[in-house]
Amino acid sequence: MSKILVIAEHLGGKLNPSTARAVSAAAAAKPEAIDVLVLADNADAIAAEAAKIEGVSRVLTVTRAENAHALAAVLAPQVAKAAAGYSHVFAPSTTFGKDLAPRVAALLGVAQVSDVMAVEGSHTFKRPIYAGNAIVTVEADPAQTVVATIRTASWPAAAIGANGTPVEALNLDVALPSYTRFVELKQGKSDRPDLQGASKVVSGGRGVGSKENFEIIYKFADRIGAAVGASRAAVDAGYVPNEMQVGQTGKIIAPELYMAIGISGAIQHLTGIKDAGTIVAINKDAEAPIFEIADLGLVGDLFKIVPELEAALAG
C-alpha cells in the first residue's frame, strides 16, 4: 500500500490552495495515508489550515528559523529525510514545487514525474509534453519513491472542513546549507482574485497596446469579479508584471470562464487555458488561431467592444 507525503506550499503564514489540489491527486492514488508536511519558521497557523483539508491523515510540522523563506536548497534535505517510509512525495506544480521537488528527487536518487494530470494507478500517471500537444502515460519504478509535481489546473482542491486531524511536530536533525540566502520578494499587490484559483479570468495580449490601455482590462475584470492574466507578449512589452503570464511557461489555469482579449492564440498560450470551462475570444482578426478553440468568439476592435460589454452588463 502507498503512503503519500504532500509538501505544503505557503506564503506569509497562509496555506496556498495548491496544497489542497495536490491532496486531491494523492487521494486518486488510493493510498493508505496522506500526510501533509509543513516546513516553516512558524508552522502553527499553516498546519491548522492544512488539518482542515479532507482526506489528510496527519499534518507534520518542521519549525526552523531557516525555513522562513522557501529556498529549495534548504528545504530539500529536510523533505528527503522526512520522505523515509513514504512511497510517494507530491508537491504542487507551481514555481515553489518545480523548484523544490527535483532537488528532493535527486537527493533520493530517483526520477521525477512532472505535472501529473491524471493518476491511473499508484505508479502510473499521465502528463503533458511538448506544451501539452501530446499526453504521455508514464510508469514509475515501484521499487523507488515516486516524486511528482501535480499540475494544479487538472485537480479540484480537496474539500475543507475536516476536524480533529492530528498535527505532529517532527525533529529531523539535518544539517542545512547556508550557501543560498533570501534577499527580497517583490509581490504585486492586488485585491483581485488569485489568478491560479479564480473562477473567472480576463486576459489581455499585445493587442491591448500599452500599460495605460491595460486599465480597460482591469476595469472590466473588476466589473465581473475576475482575475487578470496576460500573454507573454504583454508581459515582455512591460504592460503587466510577470506573475500575470498565462501559458506553457507561465501559469496553467482552469477557470470556469476565460476571456482572451487581443490575444492571437499561440500554442504556448493555449497550453495554459485548455482546461478552462468556457473560452471567449475577442480579436479584430477573424483568422486569429484563438478562434479555433474559443467557445464564443467576437471579431472586432477591443477598444470598442470592451466598453460595450460593460454597457451591456449594466443594461
Partner: peptide
C-alpha cells in the same frame, strides 16, 4: 527569479 507571487531575489555563493 520569476515566481508565482512576483519577483524573488536570492543570493547564491
Amino acid at each position: 527569479r520569476e515566481v508565482d507571487a512576483g519577483l524573488e531575489t536570492i543570493e547564491a555563493d
